[in-house]
Amino acid sequence: LRLEVKLGQGCFGEVWMGTWNGTTRVAIKTLKPGTMSPEAFLQEAQVMKKLRHEKLVQLYAVVSEEPIYIVTEYMSKGSLLDFLKGETGKYLRLPQLVDMAAQIASGMAYVERMNYVHRDLRAANILVGENLVCKVADFGLARLIEDNEYTARQGAKFPIKWTAPEAALYGRFTIKSDVWSFGILLTELTTKGRVPYPGMVNREVLDQVERGYRMPCPPECPESLHDLMCQCWRKEPEERPTFEYLQAFL
């Protein structure tokens, strides 16, 4: 395994491009020591290896001592969030954005069929390849993070704006909380990567959403798509659509 080009840095580690087995181009995620327990990670990795779908980033291998390494397929255009905010983002029109959403829903419909939960679905965790191919990455890892700023769910590192209220408040993460996050991801797509709930801080978002506030229809977004977002944001988790439905609708 060779680490060649550093692609990015996040709160919990770095991402590199490299070569595996001398020939395969891969992405390598390294986790800061202390982010998660190697034992817990190894268990999760076994499950992650079983998830194989064309719209999920394929896991190739893991190094399960500290520092933990995760070796996955390489996606040339990086994260969907950076892609939307970058040069190419300007030229993306609604049909392409909807197609990308459908690809993500397709990957998540598979996660749904496998009775698995992602827990951290957002544009930053979707990767883009050639020809606007989108794949879901980092599934299941969020559960293992041991950082206090994260586990408190009120901490600075927790993605509260993407998280369903029952998950943020009571830790009830299910495929239905993933559906909520998918609704937020749809706003990221239609606004080219704007942060959700602009002008609001995490605490406010939690309070307002509890009181029934939902983001309005983004500019140039059809009402039918906003309606779909609002279905994803129904207060009762069981009233939210399935990913199978979302995939078919898109």
Rank of each mutant, 00 (worst) to 15 (best):
P196W: 03
I28P: 00
C134Y: 08
Y213D: 04
L56I: 14
R25F: 11
Y110E: 06
I126F: 01
T35W: 10
G199Y: 14
V57L: 10
M75E: 07
G22N: 10
S37A: 08
I104D: 00
I68M: 09
P33T: 11
Q58Y: 08
K77Y: 12
G22M: 10
F249C: 06
E14D: 06
K50W: 05
L127T: 06
R211M: 12
F158S: 01
S177Y: 03
Q231N: 02
A61D: 03
V136N: 00
Q231D: 13
I28G: 12
L56C: 14
P95E: 06
D178S: 01
A152T: 04
I70W: 00
G8Q: 00
G89V: 10
L31F: 01
L51Q: 03
Q208F: 15
Y110W: 11
I104S: 07
R119Q: 01
W162S: 02
F249D: 09
L246F: 09
G155Q: 04
R143H: 00
T242W: 15
N202Q: 06
K157H: 07
Y110V: 04
K85Q: 11
S181P: 02
L56R: 01
V98P: 05
Q154K: 06
K49G: 05
D82Q: 09
G107V: 03
G212R: 05
T151V: 14
R203M: 13
R122T: 02
L127A: 04
D138S: 00
A137L: 03
G171W: 09
M36E: 07
M75N: 05
G140S: 01
E239V: 12
G18L: 00
W233K: 02
F158H: 02
V57F: 07
F243V: 15
Q58D: 15
A152D: 03
T151I: 14
Q247P: 15
G140W: 02
T30H: 12
G140A: 00
G129V: 05
P237I: 14
G86W: 11
G18A: 14
A102W: 11
L127V: 13
P38I: 08
T191K: 06
L42N: 04
Q9L: 04
S181F: 00
T88M: 13
L185I: 05
G78M: 06
T191C: 07
Q46T: 09
S106G: 10
W233P: 00
S79K: 03
V71D: 00
D138C: 03
T19K: 11
M48S: 04
H226K: 12
Y213C: 06
F83A: 10
L228A: 08
V117R: 00
E223V: 11
A105I: 07
T163N: 02
L56S: 12
E4R: 15
N21G: 12
C230Q: 11
L31C: 08
I160V: 15
R234W: 12
Y245V: 12
K29F: 02
T151Y: 12
K161N: 04
L51C: 06
C11G: 05
F182D: 02
P95N: 07
E220T: 08
Q247H: 11
Q46A: 13
